[in-house]
């Protein structure tokens, strides 16, 4: 397998970190829905906390994306 094949495979494996972010943010959103159903008056604070938690949990997916991007942009031999 040439260099390009390995680079493409590595980039594909690197983007797999998005699965963890998707599951984590889904769990956070489900807990937020539960909390709003329990106490609808606090829905403003719950929304703020959910959004902040989602932005922090998304960071690991972004690290994988950045590594895949660097692999393709720097190591692709045309």
């Amino acid at each position: 397998m040439g260099v390009n094949g390995l680079v493409a495979l590595a980039a594909g494996i690197a983007v797999f970190t998005g699965v963890g972010a998707g599951i984590g943010i889904g769990i956070a959103a489900s807990k937020a829905a539960e909390a709003v159903s329990r106490q609808p008056e606090a829905s403003g604070k719950i929304t703020t906390t959910t959004i902040i938690g989602a932005a922090l949990a998304e960071a690991t997916a972004i690290y994988g994306f950045v590594i895949a991007l660097l692999l393709i942009l720097v190591r692709w031999q045309a």
Binding site: E58, A59, I62, Y63, F65, V66, L69
Partner: peptide
């Protein structure tokens, strides 16, 4: 490092 890459990755993406 995490601050830098979080901001960079989100805006670049």
């Amino acid at each position: 490092t995490s601050l830098c890459f979080r901001l960079f990755g989100n805006i670049l993406g």
